[in-house]
Design a protein around this nucleic acid. Structure first.
Lengths: 212, 212, 212, 212
DNA sequence: GATGAATGAGCCTTCATTCAT
DNA sequence: AATGAATGAAGGCTCATTCAT
């Protein structure tokens, strides 16, 4: 009757995460073991190699499927603004967690591709794809008018991603996330209107004309 | 009278850059020396420390001041669309170079703060500040109408930054940069129109209303 | 439950001593590890630094307190000659061990002061102090007559120290230690007699007179 | 017509000496060159190897022959006390210079023997030999009575050597050199008197009897 | 003759990994 | 299962020495 396992993988992974995110991939396994309150031997019983541990620690276990369900369920039902703002705020929180880890993996010298199954679409693009799917559906329902939904999805995700990126690289910043997301949603809702209409409101001769 | 210098710092830095950007900060100085066709000893004659070499290699020598001049000179003169698209394309090219290096430095485990003067505005925010300055000026000239120029500048820079970020993390991608920038510029030019006005043009019953 | 310790610090120290005493401080840790039959890694698990190892190896664990007790217990009891000769022989043996190490540490380039507490009396002077204390006590007991006990103690220790020094620098030598010590003791015992008295016993016209 | 030599060996040697005596044999040739105000190239033009430079710097160019002449000339002429004190003071000054170098060479890992021509008698012993020769001569002249002149010479040189040794190892010290030498000379002059004579002055039963 | 740029061997030290208990 | 002692393969860095000018 073997002795039961007393060391939780989660404890190791959390310690590894804390250490790797501060010291980079070059952090030593010794420090991680110490932080996890575990012997180095145990570490390597669970993760055969440092790289394996690193990738596991940087892996994100998220409830993305759930959010995906919520977004798709809102199609044609809930107000677009409300839906997009809710999704945007969720996505930003998610990216705040994911971003430092992506940075770490990318710059570890390990190829990013190996981190995710090669068949999967890589995470940032997944969000763009999902949002595009939503926007297209709303367009089909006639609730939204957009010439290029994929581009807009990309800009929307991109801005949030950039926000998370800056916070990761520079530390906290002052901008209100709620306002930030709202402005992004405004951009999408406004895009339905043809720019020509608006242009009449500004001095015709000087501004905003497309280059010939 | 001593033997003339035959090893250029630039050659070392270029080799270091190539190696570091692929293998990360953990890349060995031996490999860098080999790539530069130089002895390890010479490496350390020029850069006393691996860290020093790393930071020097990741440093960006850019002609940002020049672009800054171009942008500010266009105020009230050149068409806004042309100016913004030109600036956007330039910024994207710049970010493609800068992004991988920022990533590397951030996640090297070296403390970022030590290597940039804390009084300086950090690079990504500099671009936002410059663009905001431009947008405000055009608004003052009555050539543009924007409720929140800073936010828009942030979204503009953010989207480009994200674009560069994705390319860095995932590798090349297909999207046309020209189109991408144009869509972003559209967003800014369109933003002058109040969303309320537009909303009346879409079927009332389906869009943007508060959830029942 | 972990693997039991199989490498004794003493084994490492002994090997280090052998190597350092022959090759000097510049001896390589690799050679020491080889001599100790141990991996270099293990070396640095025990001694964090080459310097630390060096100083530990040069440290002397001696039973000086014991000898101190013996000497002081003899005051007023055992014959002075016997006591001094015994102490002298012991001191010489001790110095033969200490001398090469002092030499090594002194000229290693490491600053001596950092490794001995500045409040402590440095080792060679400790012996002088102890012997002086003994001589003074015997003088107080009326068993010895000496104008300058400290000077005599210094000469006594000095001669033995020099003996050990020569052996260290030149290698073994022939002189009988027993005779050497006896002569030194003679010097102290004889010193009680004023030189003037003695001088009369030698042919007046030839010795020690001031030059005409 | 070759360009004349502008760098003096003596300047290099002096710099080397200063550096080696402080930093030990591990001192770098770069530092020595810098201290000497000379390029590393020039250093190695003069001394083919670091070891060669080291040994040359530690070599002593002294006027020992001169002192030898003075001492031997005094035989049977000048008062013994005056002669011995003069010689002692000279020897001490000499040893203060020689001692640190002997320490350095001994602990450099280079074999001491190689430093001096193997046919020569090593320096400390040379002094003992010379002094012995002098004492024997004075004994033959009937100006001195000593059972064991070699032993006394050895003690005399040894005490001075020890004095220099302590100063080298510990730094300056307070003892008056003049007094120190005088006491040593006293020891030799006194030794002529048989210890038995003196013993009568002390309580017979307790002190100083030779062990049976 | 003098210089200092260039080198490569080797040093101290770290660290991922294994292994005996 | 869990420990931590032990290891050996690098890694960063230094330095004596050479060489083109």
């Amino acid at each position: 009757m073997p002795r039961p396992v007393t060391i939780q993988d989660s404890a190791i992974l959390e310690a590894a995460r804390r250490v790797f995110l501060v010291r980079g991939y070059s952090a030593s396994t010794a420090e991680i073991a110490r932080r996890a309150g575990v012997s180095e031997g145990s570490l390597f019983k669970r993760f055969r190699t440092k790289t394996e541990l690193f990738l596991a620690a940087m892996q994100v276990q998220s409830r993305e499927q759930e959010q995906r369900g919520l977004l798709l369920a809102a199609i044609g039902q809930k107000p677009i603004r409300t839906t997009l703002e809710g999704y945007g705020r969720h996505l930003l929180r998610h990216l705040q967690i994911v971003m430092p880890r992506i940075l770490m993996v990318t710059s570890s010298g390990l190829r990013f591709a190996r981190h995710y199954r090669p068949t999967d679409c890589p995470p940032p693009l997944q969000h763009v794809a999902l949002l595009t799917q939503y926007l297209r559906a709303e367009i089909r329902h006639g609730r939204l008018r957009l010439a290029n939904p994929e581009m807009h999805a990309d800009i929307f995700v991109g801005a949030l991603s950039h926000c998370a990126f800056c916070e990761t690289v520079l530390g906290r910043r002052a901008t209100s996330h709620v306002d930030y997301v709202r402005t992004l949603v405004d951009g999408i809702l406004r895009a339905g209107q043809p720019p020509d209409t608006r242009r009449t409101r500004l001095p015709r001769t000087k501004t905003g004309e497309a280059p010939k």
